[in-house]
Design a protein around this nucleic acid. Structure first.
Lengths: 104, 104
DNA sequence: CGGCTGCGTAAGTCATAGCTTACGGTAAGT
DNA sequence: ACTTACCGTAAGCTATGACTTACGCAGCCG
C-alpha cells in the first residue's frame, strides 16, 4: 500500500523535476534549489514529501544534506504498475457486454 | 510526457479505487458509482480525469457508457517508471561525495 | 568565541481540486 | 408521445496543498 504515497508525491510537477535532477546523481538541497523559481524552503518541503513517500534517501555531509533516489521506493511502484498493466491487457480482451443480467 | 497526467490522475485514492474495480473487467458508470459514498456525478468527473489521462476507454452501450482500462496508458507509465527505477539503481552506487569542486 | 553557511520548521496566504445539487440530453420501454 | 433510466455538465462551496517570509538550529572557519 506504500505506492499510494509515492503516486501522490510524483503527481506534482516540481517534485518530478527534483527527481529528474536526482537521476544524474546525489545532490545537496542547495544544488537542487538552484534553477528553480521557488524558494529553497519550498524545495525542502518537496524533499520531505518525497522522502516520506520512500522515494528519497538523505545523507548528512557536514552542514549539508545530500539527497538521492531510493531504488526500493520506485521498485514498489514499478511492481504495482506492472500488475495493473497486466490486468489492463487482460480485461481489454473481455467483451464489453458480458453480463447485463448476471453480475460479473 | 503523457505520464504526467497519468500520475496526477492516479494520485487520487477514489480514482485508484475506480481503477481497482475496472481491473476485474469493464463496468458502467452506475456499476462503478455503486459502493462509493460520493455522488454519481463525482464519479463521472473522476472518470473524465482518468479518460483524459489516457488510462480509460469508453464504449457507449445503449443509454449507458461502459468504461475499461486502456493498456497503452498504463504501458507508458510503466516504461517511465522502469527507466526511473534503473537510474535510481545506478545513482545509488555512486558515492555521495564525488565532486564538491567538479560539478557532476 | 562570534559570524557565516546550509537547512528544516512554523505560521499565514492563496489557488486548486474534489464534492454537492441542479439541470439537460439521449436511449429504451409502455 | 410520455415516462423512466442513465449519464455528462454547470455552478458554487470547502478543504487541501503549494508557496512565501520569518525564525531557529547545527556545522565550519576566522
Amino acid at each position: 500500500m506504500t505506492y499510494a504515497a509515492a503516486l501522490q508525491a510524483l503527481a506534482d510537477p516540481t517534485r518530478r523535476a527534483i527527481v529528474e535532477k536526482l537521476r544524474h546523481g546525489p545532490r545537496s538541497v542547495g544544488q537542487l534549489a538552484q534553477g528553480f523559481r521557488i524558494s529553497r524552503p519550498a524545495v525542502s518541503q518537496h524533499l520531505r514529501v518525497l522522502s516520506c513517500a520512500g522515494l528519497l534517501d538523505v545523507v548528512p555531509v557536514g552542514a549539508r544534506r545530500v539527497y538521492r533516489l531510493r531504488p526500493e521506493g520506485f521498485a514498489q511502484l514499478r511492481v504495482y504498475l506492472e500488475d495493473l498493466w497486466r490486468d489492463a491487457l487482460r480485461t481489454f480482451d473481455t467483451p464489453v457486454l458480458p453480463a447485463p443480467s448476471g453480475e460479473d
